[in-house]
Amino acid sequence: MPTIDVKELSLTFTTRDGPVHALSNINLSVQAGDFVSLIGPSGCGKTTLLRAIADLEQATSGSLLVNGVSPEEARLQRAYGYVFQAASLYPWRTIAKNIALPLEIMGIGRAEQQKRIKENLALVDLADFGKKYPWQLSGGMQQRASIARALAVEPNLLLMDEPFGALDEIVRDHLNEQLLSLWAKTNKTVVFVTHSIPEAVYLSTHIVVMSPRPGRIHEIITSDLPKDRPLNIRETPEFLALANRVREGLRAGHSEDVPV
């Protein structure tokens, strides 16, 4: 059973200027343990697709199953962890308390909460910062804390919506490396939205190239890079060839774009 199974999915927003076809005829199957990146220009519906998987938007037609059940059931089972573009930590809670937030809502006991806070803070290299408030930390540290918060739920699926988009290149490289080793360690399924080609190629096992108006999948590229990827893999010919394929896919997808 695939972790995520999307068939003929379409999603239309009704706006004052008429219907907007955000997604049209999406077919996608994500297997357990995959790292799937959704890449494309803005307006191609990559975030909408992720939000539909998370039950934050509802499909207009087609079918979408997460862990074999509807997205709403999956959400109620807390089947996934969602990382937003911004860290979105609550400023009145310390970092540790922010990580405890979903656990409190799920009704998990105190001792277990403490254990998971400790584990996940260590996992994202923030072991000494549990008592700090979010606004006392840098942007990169805040985003790491929000990843720890998503992991604390212990989901087998991680949905990430341009989590490193607002960070500078150096911090971004570092977090990409950490995310990859985290993924290797925990064996989670990840769906990752990005608009950076190197990021998508470096992280993913599958790269979904999307094109806009209406949002659709242009091409799904399977990466043949080894699972163990040091940062300098980005200078190898294999990596560059893959990046080139993604770039051409994006360009081809764009040229189909007929102005309305």
Partner: peptide, 14 residues
């Protein structure tokens, strides 16, 4: 509260 913070609560099924 911002839309993102409310979405977050939604993902926790709060």
């Amino acid at each position: 509260s911002s839309a993102m913070q409310r979405d977050l609560m939604q993902t926790y099924a709060a």
